[in-house]
Amino acid sequence: MSRKSLLEWPVIRQLRSGDAFGRGENVQSQKSKDLTARTTTADRVVQSVCPYCAVGCGQRVFVKDEKVIQIEGDPDSPVSRGRLCPKGSASEQLVNSSSRQTEVLYRAPKAKEWQRLDVDTAIDMIADRFMEARRNGWQDTDDQGRPINRTMGIAGLGGATLDNEENYLIKKLFTAAGAIQLENQARI
């Protein structure tokens, strides 16, 4: 066990340096001086957008060894100018949570257990059900015989976290499929 000199005590260092209020570096421990921010050790920084609401705050995502180590507000963002709300500040936990679902789970009708599916199978199941609902709800003409070419079997509900480009593509997809019931969470 090493003995510390009385001259190295924080109060003595503070008085010797003329820092009467104890706000200088003399009151820091060596451990505090040796600390470095996680952001300085990152391999790269990726710009992103917060996933929680429709505001679209800019984020800087710090990545080390292909793992997210920190998420901060992006000062270059014209929307948030480097600020994040408490949820946005905690979005690193969303990415690195041990309870984050990383596999596709499916529960068949009236089943009690979930089963794992590969992504391709799940996408094929969704596409098949989409087309079946479109086909079952298709209307060629209205009551007066006028062509309407639409389906009442599918509808779209967009989320507020989607950006303009994503909403535009969703609108194009559902309109091309014949759906007329398109809504967005931001409008409801």
Rank of each mutant, 00 (worst) to 15 (best):
D140G: 11
K4F: 14
E166D: 11
V27F: 02
Q30E: 13
V61N: 08
M125G: 10
A122S: 03
S89W: 08
Q47E: 14
R135L: 09
C85P: 00
V55C: 10
Q101K: 05
G145P: 01
E66K: 04
R60D: 09
I170V: 12
R107I: 10
T102D: 12
R135A: 12
Y52H: 15
D143Y: 05
D43T: 11
R16Y: 06
A160V: 13
P75M: 00
D65S: 14
K4H: 08
R150A: 01
D124A: 15
R187I: 12
D140P: 06
Q101S: 05
Q93T: 02
S17A: 15
N136I: 03
L15R: 14
E66W: 01
Q181E: 11
R3Q: 13
R129I: 02
Q101V: 09
S77E: 02
Q59Y: 10
A160G: 12
N26F: 09
Q144S: 01
P51R: 15
A90W: 05
C85T: 00
W9D: 13
Q185V: 10
R23H: 08
R187W: 14
L169E: 09
A54L: 07
K64F: 05
A177S: 04
D140T: 13
E166R: 10
Y168W: 07
E165Y: 10
A133R: 12
G58C: 04
L162N: 07
S80A: 12
S98A: 15
D143M: 07
I170G: 03
T102K: 13
A177W: 00
G73Y: 03
A42M: 11
L117V: 10
G58Y: 05
A133P: 04
R135Y: 11
E132N: 06
C85I: 01
L84N: 04
W9K: 11
P147I: 05
A127P: 00
G159A: 15
E25S: 12
K67L: 06
S5N: 14
Q144K: 01
A90H: 06
E183T: 08
L94R: 03
R187V: 11
R13D: 02
G22F: 08
F62V: 07
D34Y: 02
G88C: 01
L169Q: 04
I69A: 09
Q181P: 00
